[in-house]
């Protein structure tokens, strides 16, 4: 199989397979998680909870007071890397096309030099976070194989994508194929690793928001 064939496989059957497993996994895991249900809280609410779940979903994206100082790497690194990923995934024109072909939705993209810079920042942030995980006792203590693995599968798409665009190491075609394959790996493992937080995060925040708002505490 030459590189173009590998690329075509990655764009064709590989993508189909990966998206299939991803969709299957996400649906399955979501049902597995949320069908466990929870009991209704019989204590009268302090006031109506309204959109508090949604508020928490948004509010938790910001660091709590003081925490930025105590854990700057986690927050700034995390911000840079998550926002970077979002920019790369959502605002790089080729990615928008993929999204369009999957969902029919599209929007304008950003210049590739900008995306390029964001990719570098994102990778730097991820590396800093990795070093932090190695250096910081709490993080090192908590880390399991899954954490290292998740880092690698998240880092690879950014690295391969950037290297493909920059024509580093391997020919573009092959690198692009590897990039797509690495994204497919990410898709396949996402529902079954901590990367699933990308989806359950919303549920978790929403639950927190609701449970605490019931008592009148915005969290």
């Amino acid at each position: 199989m030459d590189d173009l064939q590998l690329l075509t496989w990655a764009r064709g059957p590989g993508l189909d397979l990966a998206l299939g497993i991803f969709v299957l996994g996400v649906v399955w895991r979501l049902i597995e998680v949320y069908a466990l249900g929870r009991k209704r809280d019989l204590a009268p609410a302090r006031h109506r909870t309204g959109a508090s779940g949604l508020h928490t979903v948004l509010r938790r994206s910001m660091p709590p007071p003081g925490m930025l100082k105590t854990s700057p790497v986690s927050y700034i690194g995390g911000f840079v890397f998550h926002i970077g990923l979002a920019i790369i995934v959502l605002l790089f024109a080729p990615h928008i096309l993929l999204i369009k072909s999957l969902t029919g939705l599209s929007w304008p993209g950003l210049p590739s030099q900008f995306i390029d810079m964001v990719a570098v920042l994102t990778m730097i942030a991820m590396l800093v976070i990795l070093v932090d995980r190695i250096n910081k006792p709490v993080k090192r203590f908590l880390s399991t194989f899954g954490d290292w693995f998740a880092w690698v599968v998240t880092f690879l798409p950014v690295l391969t994508g950037w290297m493909a665009v920059q024509h580093l190491l391997l020919p573009y075609t092959l690198m692009l194929a590897l990039h797509i394959l690495s994204v497919e790996l990410l898709l396949v493992v996402l529902p079954f690793t901590k990367l699933f937080h990308a989806i359950t995060l919303f549920g978790s925040r929403w639950y927190s928001g609701k449970i605490n708002a019931h008592k009148g505490v915005p969290v």
Binding site: L7, T8, R11, G12, P13, L15, D16, L17, L19, G20, I21, F22, V23, L24, G25, V26, V27, W28, R29, L30, I31, E32, A35, P94, H95, L97, L98, K100, S101, L102, L176
Partner: peptide, 25 residues
């Protein structure tokens, strides 16, 4: 089809969602 678009029609999505739903349920 742009290089970043699927090369083949994606056929598994619906089936996968169904299988996932069945498995999940």
């Amino acid at each position: 089809k742009a290089l970043s678009m699927p090369a083949d029609p994606l056929k598994m999505g619906t089936a996968a969602a169904a299988v996932g739903a069945v498995a999940g349920v």
